[in-house]
């Protein structure tokens, strides 16, 4: 397991709010190793999503240093940052964010198109990913034709299809019922265990917490607790 897979040093994030500034993250110091199955938990407004976005280079910190897979995120240009995400990071969102006009197959195929992977390889990888999430029978369906749980499984397949080193999942079970949530979490846990992909969640769902190996609790933008759980 690679140490210092992600390094977060004295990170502060401020948002302008009128003439004042809202501090979303205060002096965060964290390290993540490869293969972790970690959750950033905390109430709404505690800074979970902000931290996840900074790790995923979707946002930048106001102060401090964030090194992801050896890249100093703040130093990356827009195109280099896009390339890093394309090659190394998979995202799972609370609202699935599937592309509505594409089929399940095309949605999962999309990240591979960005990597310019050839057609045969794409078909192989997409089939493999959909097999992981148990949706091989829905490849021609559109997002509007499948359930919420299935949409989230498509989103997982899309996140893992390119075999990223890191998957960032923002409240992946928030819109799902208990059964679907457990299925999704089991799927992600299985992927984590079998492929070694690092998973970092932002969540306040108790169901997710049961599956985590490490739990980082944020309160008002600060790390309140960082603990190994469930035998992690």
């Amino acid at each position: 397991m690679k140490e210092n897979f992600i390094e977060i040093k004295h990170v502060k994030k401020e948002y302008p709010m009128g003439t004042n500034k809202f501090v979303a993250l205060k002096d965060i110091d964290l390290n993540f190793s490869e293969g972790e199955f970690t959750g950033i938990v905390g109430p709404s407004g505690s800074g979970k999503t902000t931290l996840l976005n900074i790790i995923g280079s979707l946002d930048s910190q106001s102060e401090g240093e964030v090194i992801v897979l050896g890249y100093e995120v703040a130093d990356l240009s827009s195109s280099k940052s896009a390339r890093m995400r394309s090659e190394n990071i998979g995202f799972i969102f609370q609202t699935y964010n599937l592309l509505p006009v594409y089929t399940v197959f095309e949605n999962v195929e999309f990240p591979l198109l960005l990597l310019r992977i050839n057609k045969n390889e794409r078909i192989k990888l997409v089939t493999e990913a959909l097999k992981w999430v148990g949706l091989l029978d829905k490849i021609k369906s559109r997002p509007s034709q499948i359930s919420g749980g299935e949409c989230q499984r498509v989103a997982i397949a899309r996140a893992i299809v390119k075999k990223p080193k890191l998957v960032l999942a923002d409240e992946p079970t928030a819109n799902l019922d208990a059964d679907n949530s457990h299925n999704i979490l089991k799927t992600m846990k299985k992927i984590n265990e079998e492929t070694g992909t690092t998973f970092i969640f932002a969540t306040h769902d108790a169901k997710v917490i049961k599956y985590l190996k490490r739990k980082i609790t944020l309160l008002d933008g600060s790390v309140a607790k960082d603990e190994l759980v469930n035998g992690g």
Binding site: S78, S79, R83, S86, N97, P100
Partner: peptide
Amino acid sequence: RKEMGTMMAMGMTRVK
């Protein structure tokens, strides 16, 4: 917008 945000998250460049 959200669709484009998703594309950006997946690594699509602004130019693309």
